[in-house]
Amino acid sequence: MLKVFIFLLLQVSICFAETGPGDLPGDSIYQVKSKWVDQFGKKVELSSLAGKPVAVSMIYLSCKFSCPMTVAHMKELEKILPDNLKNDVQFVLVSFDGKNDTPTVMKKYAEKHGLAFPKWRFLTSKNEQDVREFSSLIDFKYKKIANGDFEHSFGIVALDSHGRVLGSTVGAAMAEKDLIPLFEKK
């Protein structure tokens, strides 16, 4: 009988754990429950980014061409942000190469490029389904090709402090500066 009770209790607690992710709005991409690791090996959920606006892009760190450019564009955005946003916006780089971009690799990359935590965060996951889910939510495409490289979209997505997509330079004729008014309107 006690076992049955514990069983039921467990069920109830599971149900509670699955009900709504706090007070996130219905169009927040932070509603997904995917698990990620950051550059310190810490397990995080996307909802941990809530509270501040985010500029996010997806890359893989062994990439030679467009990824350093992505980082350069993100840095450019950081530079041109007006004072009221400068210390507000978080810069997040999500790697779709969870196999090779371990926390150690991400941390080294961050140090090499002067991308200091907590303003700059790196996330990755070995769960292909979760990475695909995230890329779908920000309309970012990627595909593994031969010799460990990836073909992928290119650009920056602006999220508000609740994780709602404000706008994006991915596949759009937009520049970094066009994201600023979006951040300001939030």
Binding site: R132, S135, S136, K141, Y142, K144, E151, H152, S153, F154
Partner: peptide
């Protein structure tokens, strides 16, 4: 399919 969005056709990728 899991990776239906891997098709690079929107003129935004390197390829």
């Amino acid at each position: 399919t899991l990776d239906f969005n891997s098709a690079m056709v929107t003129g935004e990728s390197r390829a």
